[in-house]
């Protein structure tokens, strides 16, 4: 199978994720969309690794997974504490950081 197809899939997933980040208000869903974008990138990395025949892309994919795992921990903790204080998981409600 032509590896370029994986790149098309990756772009599609990234676009879905980005759209989700921009239009959804629920923090959990926004968060999942971010994960989706990250994994779309991972797919692209692995594909490029395959296309170029070296391991660089795969290594970076592992790094991305590590960072994403850490980010999930922190992000979920923030969302949970936000929900506890405000009784809402909407990202638009948390808009106090402005001038």
């Amino acid at each position: 199978m032509n590896p370029v197809n994986y790149l098309y899939l990756s772009a599609l997933l990234f676009t879905i994720g980005a759209t989700g980040v921009l239009i959804r208000r629920n923090a959990i869903v926004v968060f999942m969309c971010i994960e989706l974008m990250l994994n779309a990138c991972n797919l692209a990395f692995v594909t490029f690794s395959r296309m170029h025949g070296n391991l660089d892309g795969q290594i970076i994919a592992f790094f991305t997974m590590v960072v994403a795992a850490a980010e999930v921990v922190v992000g979920l903790a923030i969302i949970v504490s936000l929900f506890r204080t405000r009784h809402s998981a909407s990202v638009d409600d948390a808009s106090l950081m402005k001038l």
Partner: peptide, 11 residues
């Protein structure tokens, strides 16, 4: 521009 909405920053 600094309106506090995370999604507008994302845009």
């Amino acid at each position: 521009l600094q309106n506090g909405f995370a999604r507008s920053y994302a845009v």
